[in-house]
Design a protein around this nucleic acid. Structure first.
Lengths: 335, 335
DNA sequence: CTGAAAGCGCTAACAC
DNA sequence: GTGTTAGCGCTTTCAG
C-alpha cells in the first residue's frame, strides 16, 4: 500500500496535522521539524493523495477538454496548447473526443462532473444548447473555444470568423478572381456561417455577385472537400478560386484540381482557414487564414483558471483576430 | 452545493447505504425502492462523486498518457485511439506532453501518482530508465507504446521496427535502387536503430553495401528532414532513394528534392514510416511503412486495464507487424 | 431487504 | 509551534 499521511506522521514522530502543514506550507512550523518531515516523506516516497485532498474541499486541479476529434490536426494543436497552459497553472487535463455527437457530449459532461473537474473547456463546434445549459446549471466554470453561443453568458475565446472570411474573399478579389467558390463544412455552425458571410461581403464590395450554386458543403475531411470541389468543376463556368472554411477542405480542393488536370495556382486559387501544420506541408503550400491556436488555448485556460480560483466574476468574450498567411496556393488571375 | 448521497437518502427516506447500493447495483434492493431512489436522484440531479468513491478504495478510473507532443500527428492519432479505447472501458485519460524532456517526464509521473491514476501508458520515445523504474517501484500498472525496454519487465505494445525497416529497404531494392540513403530521427532511440538495422539488412541481402555517409540524422520535424536531405544531395553521387524513419522526415526529404529541382518519384524515391494522415495528404502521396496506430492504442489500453482489474499477472510484449503501403513517392529506377 | 457505523487520507479550525 | 478532532462523500461489513 502507498504510505499515507499517518505513516509519515508516525515515522517522523509528529501529528498528521503537522505533516499536512509542511506539505501545504501553511501554518507555522519550525524549520527543524519541517526539514525532518520532508526527509521522512522522501524516505517513504510519500505522495500526498490529491483525491483525499479534493474530498476535503480543495479543488481537483483537473479540467476537461471536449473536442470533436483529436486526430484532426487543428484540434490536436488546440489540445496541445490547452494542456501546456493548464500544466503551467498546475492543472491536468482530461481529453474527450466527442465526434460532435450530442449524446457523447452529454455523457462526457456527466462523467467530468462526477470526476469533479474544476472546469471545462469546450472546443466542440456543435451548437448544443442542452449540453451547455446543463453545464451552466451545475455551476461549473466553462470556457468555449471556437464558436460562441450568442444567447449564453459564458466565457468564450474565439477568432473573428467574419473578418477571416472577409480577408479570404478580399484576397481572392484583389487577385482578380471573379468566380469564387466557397467550400463549407457545415452550415449549422455559426462559425462557418460567419466565415461565409464575411467572404460574401468582400465579394459584394467588389461588385461581384455571389452565386449560391458556388457554395458547396463538405465536412471536416479531405475527401469531402475533394468531392464537393469536383462537383463544382462540372459547372459550365468553372470557378477560378475557392475559399475553403478549413484547411482539410482546402486540401481536398487542391486534390480535386489535380485530378481534373488543372494547374495550381494558375488555374485555381485556393484559400483555407485555420493554418494548421497541414497548410505548410501540402503542395503547393496553402494560403490560409491563420487562427492563433496557441493563444486561443492559452487565453481559454487563463479565463477558466481565473474563474475557478474565484478571481473573476465578469464573464467575457475574447475575440482574437485572424491573419491572412500568403503561401503559394493563390495567384492573380485574369480572363 | 452539489447534492450528496445524504441529500438523496433524506429526500428518498432511506439510508445512505441503500442509496449507495442502488447507485452501484450491489446488494439486494427491492424494485420499488430502487426505482424510487433513482427518481429522487434524477430530481436532485445527483451526480455521485467519483473522488469520494475513489477514496474508499475504488479505483479512480483514470489513466495517464505521456507522449512527446500532441501536436505531432502520429502522437495525436495514438492519443485518439487510447482515449477511445479507454473510454470504452470507462476510463478517462490525462494527457501529458513531455517534449521528451526527462525532467518533465518525472514531474508528470509524480503528478499522476498524486492524482492516483490507475495506470499509465507511456508513448515517450526516450530511454528513461529512471522514469520507468520509479513507476514500477510504485507498483502502478504501466504499458509502453512505441519502443520496448529490453531490461524491464513491463507490458509493451510495439511495432516490429526491424521488419518495418527491412520492408522499406527491400521495397527500394526491388525497385532497382542502388544508392539508398537513410534519414533517422535520433540514434539514441532503440526503435530507430532497429529500423535502420532492418533497412541495412535488406540492402545487404541484395549485395548492396551501406555507406554510413548516406545515413543522416534529422529529428521529428519536416525542417530537419529537409535539411538533412539537402546535405545528402551535395554528395557527388546522389542517392536515388531514401528511407526516412518517420513521415515528417520523409516529407522533409520530398521538399528538399523539390527545392533541388528534382522530379518525384522518378529522380528520388522516398519511403516513410508511421503512415500518419500526412502520408495521404502530401504530394506525391507517400509510400510508407504503416504502423497500426489504432491497434497499438487499443491493445495497450486493454493490457493496462486487465492489469488494473487484476485479471492478469503475466506481463507481455505484443509485437504488431508493420505493412508497406504503396503510394506514389517511390518508383523503379535504373541507371 | 435495509440501516448503523466504521473507515478511506486529508484539511481546517480550535485547543494546548 | 504542535496536536486533537470533526468532517469531506462514499463503500462496506455486519446487524437486524
Amino acid at each position: 500500500m502507498k504510505p499515507t499521511i499517518y505513516d509519515v506522521a508516525q515515522a517522523a514522530g509528529v501529528s498528521i496535522a503537522t505533516v499536512s502543514k509542511v506539505i501545504n506550507a501553511t501554518g507555522r512550523i519550525s524549520d527543524k521539524t519541517r526539514k525532518h518531515v520532508h526527509s521522512v516523506m522522501e524516505q517513504l516516497k510519500y505522495q500526498p493523495s490529491m483525491v483525499a485532498a479534493a474530498l476535503t474541499g480543495k479543488s481537483t486541479y483537473t479540467i476537461g477538454l471536449t473536442l470533436p476529434d483529436l486526430a484532426n490536426p487543428f484540434f490536436a494543436e488546440i489540445a496541445r496548447s490547452v494542456e501546456d497552459r493548464g500544466h503551467e497553472h498546475g492543472f491536468s487535463v482530461f481529453i474527450c473526443n466527442t465526434d460532435n455527437d450530442p449524446d457523447k457530449e452529454v455523457k462526457y459532461l456527466s462523467l467530468l462532473s462526477q470526476k469533479r473537474v474544476d472546469g471545462i473547456i469546450s472546443a466542440t463546434r456543435i451548437q448544443n444548447d442542452q449540453f451547455l445549459k446543463k453545464l451552466i446549471q451545475q455551476n461549473i466554470p466553462i470556457a468555449l473555444i471556437t464558436g460562441e453561443m450568442p444567447t449564453l453568458a459564458v466565457d468564450t475565446v474565439m477568432v473573428d470568423d467574419y473578418l477571416g472570411g472577409f480577408q479570404a474573399g478580399n484576397h481572392l478579389v484583389e487577385l482578380g478572381h471573379k468566380r469564387i467558390a466557397i467550400l463549407v463544412e457545415d452550415m449549422d455552425n455559426m462559425s462557418n456561417r460567419e466565415r461565409i458571410r464575411g467572404c460574401k461581403q468582400a465579394l459584394c464590395q467588389a461588385g461581384l455577385d455571389v452565386e449560391e450554386r458556388l457554395i458547396a458543403t463538405g465536412g471536416f475531411s479531405v475527401e469531402s472537400g475533394q468531392q464537393a470541389m469536383s462537383q463544382l468543376f462540372k459547372l459550365e463556368d468553372r470557378p477560378s478560386a475557392v475559399f475553403a472554411c478549413n484547411d482539410l477542405l482546402a486540401i481536398g480542393a487542391i486534390r480535386a484540381a489535380r485530378v481534373a488536370g488543372m494547374q495550381l495556382p494558375s488555374e485555381l486559387s485556393v484559400v483555407g482557414f485555420d493554418n494548421t501544420i497541414l497548410a505548410t506541408l501540402i503542395d503547393p503550400p496553402l494560403t490560409t487564414i491563420a487562427q492563433p491556436i496557441q493563444e486561443i488555448g492559452r487565453r481559454a485556460v487563463d479565463l477558466l483558471v481565473q474563474e475557478i480560483k474565484g478571481e473573476k466574476v465578469l464573464k467575457q468574450r475574447v475575440v482574437l483576430l485572424p491573419e491572412l498567411v500568403l503561401r503559394n496556393s493563390s495567384a492573380s488571375y485574369s480572363d
